[in-house]
Amino acid sequence: MTNNVALIFAGGVGSRMGNKGRPKQFLEVHRKPVIIYTIEHFEKNENISSIVVVCKQDWIDYLKKLIVKFNITKVKFIIEGGDTGQESIYKGLKCISNNYPSESIVLIHDGVRPIINNELIDLNINAVKQYGSAITSCPPVETFVQVDINKKVKGVHNRNLSRLAKAPQSFYLKDILSVHDKAIADNYTEAIDSCSLMNHYGFSVHLIEGISENIKITTPIDFFIFKAILDANEQMAIFN
């Protein structure tokens, strides 16, 4: 059986949340931190064998307590992040490579992207097995334009030929680790995410259809949208 490892990135400080004390991944909704909502999806998926979390150093001990409190059993390693997202993911990949075979499938996911589901995780795993990669995506619902440095419109993108890259973004461990090694050798630090890094080094990336509510909690409005979705789902469960 292939090892399917979730790599959860939880190293952000939440500057855009306007919250100076507690990183956004540890903000609570109904007495449960956002990061736990996220981890629980991978914890409950029968195809995920283990979870590695990259965390801000000052919050590692607190996260360990949360893992015990919420009966999380699949988190095998919690490691300190780096100075950038790219560096933090690399440190997580190195941890995985030191403990799991190179043919393992890695699902890279934002700790502050808590609205996913079992089907989406399985789609990622199956797409990697079939195509070598899986980039969760959704079509844009609004028009977006390309501008120059003077903020003049240079072009309007065709929405039918555009997608929003979301997460999980999933790969064979050997492939995603190899591009990170190349990026270090090239001193390339401009990758926005794993998808862009793989594309930069010539790998073909396969898109899978995600869900529109798979938001990343970055601003206060995102946080309240997440809470509203949870409350709505709870109400629907009562009536069903």
Rank of each mutant, 00 (worst) to 15 (best):
G92K: 04
A183T: 06
G11H: 11
C95I: 08
G132W: 08
T143N: 12
D193L: 11
S204L: 01
P168T: 05
A167E: 01
V128P: 02
S102Q: 14
I115K: 01
I36C: 09
Y90H: 04
D148K: 09
N45F: 09
W59Y: 04
I36E: 14
L93W: 03
K32N: 14
G21I: 11
F42I: 12
G21L: 13
L207R: 10
N124V: 00
N240L: 10
V112H: 10
V13T: 05
M17S: 00
G11Q: 03
N47Q: 09
K69Y: 14
C195Y: 11
V68S: 15
W59T: 01
I39L: 15
L123V: 01
D110C: 10
H180W: 03
P168V: 02
Q146G: 05
I184F: 12
K32T: 15
A167Q: 05
F223M: 12
K74L: 08
A134H: 00
I221D: 15
S49I: 00
I67N: 12
I229K: 02
I78S: 05
C95A: 10
K24A: 08
G132N: 03
E46N: 15
D231N: 05
E190H: 05
I176Q: 03
M198Q: 05
I115E: 04
I51A: 14
V145L: 04
Y37L: 08
F9C: 12
I35P: 10
H30V: 02
D58E: 04
A185S: 14
L93F: 02
P33E: 09
D222V: 06
E209S: 09
R16I: 01
M1Q: 03
N45C: 07
A185C: 09
N19Y: 07
H206N: 07
L207D: 08
K91N: 06
R22K: 09
I108T: 11
I96W: 01
R31Q: 11
A167C: 07
E234A: 15
K174H: 04
Y201W: 06
N99H: 14
P101A: 09
A167T: 01
I51F: 04
L123R: 12
H109I: 04
N126F: 08
G14E: 02
A228Q: 03
C55A: 15
I108M: 14
C95V: 08
A185G: 07
A165V: 11
N233S: 00
